[in-house]
Design a protein around this nucleic acid. Structure first.
Lengths: 209, 209
DNA sequence: AAATTCAGCGTACACTTGTTAGCTGAAATG
DNA sequence: CATTTCAGCTAACAAGTGTACGCTGAATTT
């Protein structure tokens, strides 16, 4: 029942995924990868590629799904750390930046295909970002008693700032990245404070940071 | 002195630029355009392309420069409208959104190549965004008496939010775009208020909107 | 043990691509 | 008017692409 065959198939499937990931660097985007190159790096014939994916897009969507999942898991873990005390803003931003730093290729892929050419990609990535946004909105409503519409606008703004900063961080060295992270935290606090100041006064809380 | 020859050359140069612009749609990115396709649409032989640009990248950089220039001019005009009274935030965001709506292809190009594969592109686009950011920073320092570092962080956040919203607006119909624009204005006000609340109290002004 | 499945292979085809080399004829220059 | 310049052309090339077809042999099923 181990399935020697299925096992081997899964192995070369991973090889394809890994090959694609390896070829994603600042100098070549996913959409510029060719089926043949990826197959070559994975060590199989070009035609065998089709045993695993219908085309390159399907491979790409797999990468997006896996990358998004990993990010969501990380943020879930970080929320547990918050329960034990600590600033939600600070920890979340750091978690996000760490993810970007250690998954540059996947994050770059997401950035590129977010504005890219294939509708399925754009939708898949929009969905990932929406998850992020939705969880933040829920948090703001539940833990901070912020009314729905304001919470939506606030988390939308925060996600925009953080993702955009993540994009810029790709090209930075550790030191500059730390500076950028610090600035991002400050900016998220701006948004939070600004949003708070728009609450009906009886709802507002003393401090958000 | 009219220069019949130079005149004709300029004309086909514009034809090339226009051809490239025409082929930029949601379904095909600039980096996927081929020199041959563009030349074909412009009505010249592929080899004649080289009489005008060294390669496609050079054409692309021209597009970025022209697009960025147009945007900056628009914003300069809108700042004059502000001098006559009106909310700087509201007018600027509307101006920006209008630009995006009427120059979708160029804006899409900028989004794509911002995270793209060619360093020159990334730098050129970063420079355009920096202009935007710098002018906003100067405004905040001069007109609002906000200290340098805070002004930088604030305008950085605002630019991130606005550009990101502009990206999302590309796919929307007029009605949804209006909603997004309204939300963006709200978000920019959040940032402005939040930043204001971080001022040393003797500097703070009563109202930013 | 026989029959079936199927991941991976080699061959082949029709395209598209960027770029070189050299020609042409009208515009510009003297 | 003679000469030079040069935008645009045709032809040709080597290189790369996605994909259809049919074969093989080991793993699986019957």
């Amino acid at each position: 029942m181990a399935g020697i065959r299925a096992q081997q198939k899964e192995k070369t499937r991973r090889a394809l995924i890994q090959a694609a990931l390896n070829q994603l660097c600042p100098e070549s985007s996913f959409s510029s990868l060719s089926l043949r190159e990826v197959s070559r790096e994975a060590g199989i014939a070009p035609t065998s590629f089709y045993r695993h994916f219908q085309n390159m897009d399907e491979l790409g969507l797999t990468l997006v799904d896996e990358g998004g999942l990993a990010l969501r898991q990380l943020l879930r873990q970080s929320r547990q750390r918050i329960a034990k005390g600590g600033s939600i803003i600070e920890i979340s931003v750091h978690t996000f930046m760490d993810y970007v730093t250690h998954n540059k290729n996947i994050f770059r892929l997401m950035l590129q295909e977010q504005a890219g050419t294939t509708k399925d990609f754009r939708l898949a990535i929009a969905r990932e970002i929406d998850h992020f946004k939705q969880e933040l909105t829920d948090y703001l409503k539940a833990e901070r008693n912020i009314p729905a519409e304001l919470a939506r606008a606030q988390s939308d703004a925060i996600v925009r700032v953080v993702f955009s900063a993540g994009a810029d961080s790709l090209d930075l060295q550790a030191e500059d990245r730390a500076r950028l992270t610090a600035q991002t935290i400050l900016q998220v606090r701006m948004v939070a404070r600004g949003a708070n100041s728009m609450l009906p006064p009886n709802l507002s809380e003393p401090n958000v940071s």
